Simulated assay, not measured.
Amino acid sequence: MRGRKPIPTAMKIALGNPEKRPLNRREPKPVTSIPTCPAHLMPAAKTEWKRIARYLHDLGVISELDRAALAAYCQAYGRWVETEKKLKETPTLLRTPAGYVQPSPWLAISNKNVELMHKFMSELGLSPVSRSWVATTHHIGPKPWEFTGEDEDEFFT
């Protein structure tokens, strides 16, 4: 697909439909649920799945349809953890038999998995920037402090 990614209808509504284009009233709205964790994930990936699946569900942004994307993110996370452990055990730079210095192959694998994680994080709303685009009626944790305007001097100092 060329050009920018389309903005979901719920997000367009939350932003006030800045482009003033007709809204897709027939956009699918899957029921939010926690997908089952795939058995093939490595242990660190399963731990990450357990850590974030509940948060995504509580925010109302995950469904069974998102299982593959969440699994891919978690597996990339698991591989990243594994390669970071290997990087602790081996030097970052290695000397080849010919005497040249080159980066460890573990560094390239780690960097690639960070790239993959970043892509899936933006798709799933797992980064601060991507969350700023998501509108939800769900709230987790204590209510944020609301500025009433009464203690303006204290607020701005």
Rank of each mutant, 00 (worst) to 15 (best):
M11D: 01
R131K: 14
E19K: 15
S63Q: 13
P144A: 06
L87W: 12
H138M: 00
A76F: 12
F156L: 07
M42F: 03
L126W: 15
L70Y: 09
V134Q: 13
P43A: 04
V129T: 13
M117W: 06
T36F: 11
M42H: 10
A72D: 09
A71R: 11
S63F: 06
P105V: 06
L124E: 05
K143A: 02
A10I: 13
Y100V: 09
F147D: 01
E27Y: 07
K88Y: 05
A69F: 15
R131M: 08
M1S: 05
R79L: 02
R131C: 03
L116W: 14
F120G: 00
T83K: 10
G99K: 15
P35H: 14
I7D: 03
N113W: 01
F147Y: 09
G3T: 14
H57C: 06
Y77T: 04
L70E: 03
R131Y: 04
N113G: 01
C37N: 11
W145R: 13
H40C: 01
R4N: 11
T137P: 03
P28V: 07
G16W: 10
V134H: 10
A53T: 10
K86F: 01
R26T: 04
L15T: 11
P103E: 09
T9F: 00
P6Y: 12
L107W: 09
K20C: 06
V129P: 08
R2Y: 04
S127P: 08
P105Y: 11
H57R: 13
T157K: 14
L15F: 14
P105A: 02
M121C: 04
E64F: 08
R54P: 07
E115Q: 12
E48L: 00
C37E: 11
K12I: 04
A72H: 15
E146F: 07
M11W: 08
T137H: 09
T137V: 06
L126E: 13
A98I: 07
A76I: 06
E152P: 04
W106T: 05
E152Q: 10
K5Y: 04
S127H: 12
A72K: 14
P6D: 06
R79E: 03
L87V: 10
S104C: 14
K50L: 01
M1H: 12
W145H: 08
W145G: 01
G149R: 11
